[in-house]
Design a protein around this nucleic acid. Structure first.
Lengths: 342, 342
DNA sequence: TTGTAGGCGTTATCAA
DNA sequence: TTGATAACGCCTACAA
């Protein structure tokens, strides 16, 4: 039950050689004799030496840690992106630190600062929906050397790369699909347009309607949270009127799920009376009583790409490195029973 | 676009005072004059000084970071425990680093080492189901000063505190409830008994049967994974025989969900032909077509308690600190339609 | 109240 | 091939 940690000095003392040599041996420096190298490695193991990464990081300036800030971790989408980043960076010796903003702007700022203080080598982030002002990010970028990479929920900030899917196309494809199923009164559950993703999905929806000669009705656009209750509420609101919709395109799977439950409670048939399609392809969509169509965002790939953008940035220039990249992935439309009319 | 980070030396130089004074001023040391304190704080802000936590940690020996190792983050249970730890430790200035073992023993070992290397102040962990041998943890404990605290999926290791729920009682309560609903042929979906939690839930099940004079049938015990498919498979297997069960107590909500789907496909009525109860109270249980009974593990509280055990450990002894604690929380039986016979 | 100096554990530079 | 020494940025006796 040792109290003190073993250092290279302890090894050097025991072996009567300098600490510098021990360090070199441990790092497999070519200009250290094979004999001493083996000796050092052996005694290091015997003494249970563990390198102090803090000291190394202080010296080298690189912690080999990267940080990820997400609104929350317990959805398939975010946990899968994280998985993708891990898969890309772990083999390169990086370690991933995960932080949650809980959709809270002030928490998000704190998390960013904590990660910067911890000297991570890169920060991946997906913005909280309450983040209206991103000046603090610009400032962080200017006063630190730490690269920041957005994924999914991004803002256009000079110097920040991003990995997203083509949300516009996702919205367009989903809406077009509903139109081709014969739907004429398609309503849309949208998230806060403060976030680009929701604005884009809406744009895709609007343009698809226009392309097929359908008129967009303002009161068919409902802003919902990404929650079951919110989707159910929206249905109650919409079905309180005369001209009820015959389809729902929801920017959130959770809201779409809530809508399905409420429709069922009202005795309305899916997909024949109302076709439904969600967004994100959360696993439950596949296991619902009426399997739900959705737009897949390829989250694992998104994470892997984000990791790649970081690694490329490191390699491309050892000094400065400030090539801004925008990676846009293709969304995939998954058609299931909830929107398929025979 | 500064390349170099500002240090206390930069401030001391600009102000023509010593770095020590700057350090003291920054740390609000009482024996530094109010005047210089204000001056230092002001210029620090102007120069955009950021403390290098690495250097501080190297000096102080405490990083103010704690690590959490979980099998995976994307279930309500684990993400809620993490939330609880965050809620308890963030106000104390700690930062939480989250790692996933992906239920893989060798990954778990790596994650532990990474966290130890990162000099975290404490490691909270919930074991992977493939972890049969925990010698590496005992070894880590002996060669480091870093406390390890188990939650939920623990092993009994001397010197390691743990926070769990009374899984035995959870199993007992669930089974007793089914018996009181009139069920006589209660089968059990269990996880790998390598994990104490599953062994205990099974024990509770077995003892409840005995207490009420029911016989335990070996072939009513099915080992399932915590997945929908696995639960559906189990039902197929069980209903292939003559004496079909009239109730299912599943140690996993996911397996229970799979069972419900398969039962429905077979046209079997829940709860009248078969009553079903799961474990964990995952959010979907409440929103199912037939809301499912479950045993709540109070995960947020579990996380908070784990955080508290750590904080208490620090306070109770500045030297050594090795009081082993075992916190056992009370499970809560949540009765919903899937097990309620009128 | 402030300054000097040494050390936390490592690596890199320069000599030897 | 190895050793001495300085440096990374911070904190803290001890001295002044």
């Amino acid at each position: 039950m040792d109290k003190k940690n073993i250092t290279i000095y302890d090894i050097s003392e025991k072996l009567n050689i300098s600490a510098a040599t021990v360090s070199r041996a441990l790092n497999d420096d070519p200009k250290v004799s094979q004999a001493t190298k083996e000796l050092v490695l052996k005694t290091a193991k015997e003494m249970n030496y563990k390198q102090n990464k803090l000291a190394k990081a202080l010296k080298s300036g690189s912690t080999k840690n990267v940080g990820i800030i997400v609104p929350y971790i317990n959805t398939n989408f975010f946990s899968s992106v994280i998985r993708g980043v891990e898969e890309e960076l772990t083999p390169q010796g990086y370690h991933v630190i995960i932080c949650q903003s809980h959709e809270d702007y002030s928490v998000e700022i704190k998390q960013l600062n904590t990660l910067l203080n911890a000297q991570v080598d890169c920060i991946f982030m997906s913005l909280s929906k309450t983040t209206l002002n991103t000046d603090y990010i610009t400032r962080a970028l200017n006063t630190n050397n730490t690269p920041i990479i957005f994924f999914d929920r991004k803002k256009d900030i000079s110097g920040i790369s991003s990995v997203t899917i083509d949300d516009y196309k996702g919205g367009y494809l989903a809406t077009e699909h509903l139109i081709k199923q014969g739907c004429k009164n398609i309503c849309h559950f949208s998230g806060n347009h403060n976030l680009e993703i929701y604005q884009q999905r809406y744009n895709g929806y609007a343009d698809a309607l226009k392309a097929y000669g359908l008129t967009l009705k303002e009161d068919y656009i409902i802003t919902t949270a990404s929650s079951i209750e919110s989707g159910a509420d929206a249905v109650r609101k919409l079905w309180d009127r005369d001209d009820v919709p015959d389809a729902i395109f929801s920017s959130s799977d959770f809201a779409a799920l809530g809508a399905c439950k409420e429709l069922k409670a009202k005795g309305i048939n899916i997909p024949n009376e109302v076709a439904v399609i969600g967004f994100s392809n959360e696993p439950f969509t596949e296991y619902m009583e009426m399997p739900m169509s959705s737009v897949d965002q390829t989250p694992v790939l998104m994470g892997k790409m984000a990791g790649q953008v970081f690694l490329e940035g490191i390699n491309e220039s050892n000094s400065g490195m400030n090539i801004q990249k925008k990676v846009v992935l293709k969304p995939e439309l998954l058609i299931r029973k909830s929107s398929l009319r025979k």
